[in-house]
Amino acid sequence: MFELFRKKENLRDRAFMILTLLCAFLPLAAAIGFLILLGGNSAEAFRTFGFGFLVSTQWDPVQELYGALPAISGTLVTTLIALGIAAPLGFISALFLVNAPEWLAYPLSQALDLLAAIPSIIYGMWGLFVLAPVMQECIQPFLADTLGLGKVPFFGEDYNGFGFLTAGLILALMVLPYICAVMRDVFRMTPGPLREAAYGIGCTSWEVASDIVLRHGLRGILGAVFIGLGRALGETMAVLFVIGGIAELPHSLFGSGTTIAATLANNFNEADGLLRSVLFALGLILMLLSLSVQAVAQLYLRNMDRKRGEK
């Protein structure tokens, strides 16, 4: 009787284990499924264009000639602009939030975190109706004419409020809360004695942050940057409205272009045949980009988790 009871319990335990583990495997299965489906559906595109697809700049729906380079390079450019702004901004903001008195730091960090709660479509809308006009009337004229940056290559003298810089700014704002949150963790995890030793030798608080804390938490900080990178890479709605949406290589900061995600969003619903396969291929490229970025981020952050585990 007792034996039987035990067996039943064991059976239930086993069922529990199998069920939960099956569920645990789902993300892995999904990731593999993503790769298979995207790969399978993009086969036609790669058969048609070969790997020249990756470096071709053509985008001609009439003649059905497509290349991925404008979208890929546009994605990289917006991401780089976003990180170029968000990473240092996140670092110094985290510095302030960690050192400021609690009554000030708490509401400010909550407000900053709320940036992550705003849906991306709202960023896109705000970018289109609010930021783009401001960019056109104030910021871009200031940068191009007043500072004379228009003469510098990569900026461009023509501006209309849209383009890579605007998209990059919005993206920077979107990824800032994520970067800042991880950096705040990194700062808080710096051992007290190390901080005291640095102050003890006569450092200013900036010197402590830039020479000691930055070095000590370098991996965590890089991980934070990569998390932001992953987010910026695939963001769709915030970029879609302000990037301009033309399949051309990026030629200037103020110029228009496109990203992989924006290309997908703009064309997918109407596409069929070869174009759809091309879009799947772009999706596959985006997936691989994101995968590699995540892999690097994990590599860097795992070390931090381990350190946290020791505490």
Binding site: P193, A197, A198, G200, I201, H216
Partner: peptide, 11 residues
């Protein structure tokens, strides 16, 4: 100058 209980080499 101050030396602490636990060694604190800089990274």
């Amino acid at each position: 100058g101050m030396i602490f209980q636990r060694p604190t080499p800089f990274p």
